[in-house]
């Protein structure tokens, strides 16, 4: 998984959390002026990047034994 993929994952997770925040407002869970509406997309940005890095490491860990077996 490339760094570009990490950025893409972070961006997509941010948008996902933005829509989740919008859902929470639209369904009356949060008031419009809630700070949570701001925090959720930012948390999504960080979470997406972290998950993407974890996925990258996981992919690398999976690829290494496969290369060893091939040799």
């Amino acid at each position: 998984m490339s760094y570009g993929r990490v950025v893409l994952s972070a961006f997509l997770t941010m948008l996902l959390m933005l829509f989740v925040a919008a859902d929470l407002v639209l369904f009356g869970v949060l008031p419009l002026n809630s700070i949570v509406v701001t925090i959720l997309p930012l948390a999504g940005l960080v979470l997406g990047a972290v998950l993407a890095i974890m996925a990258r490491k996981r992919q690398s860990a999976g690829a290494a034994p496969a290369q060893t077996a091939a040799v």
Binding site: L8, L26, A55
Partner: peptide
């Protein structure tokens, strides 16, 4: 529309993080 956006980006995020 918002629910649709949530579903769409949940799928796209899942695909981007597929290796996880």
């Amino acid at each position: 529309i918002s629910l649709g956006g949530t579903a769409l980006f949940a799928i796209l995020t899942g695909l981007a993080l597929k290796p996880l």
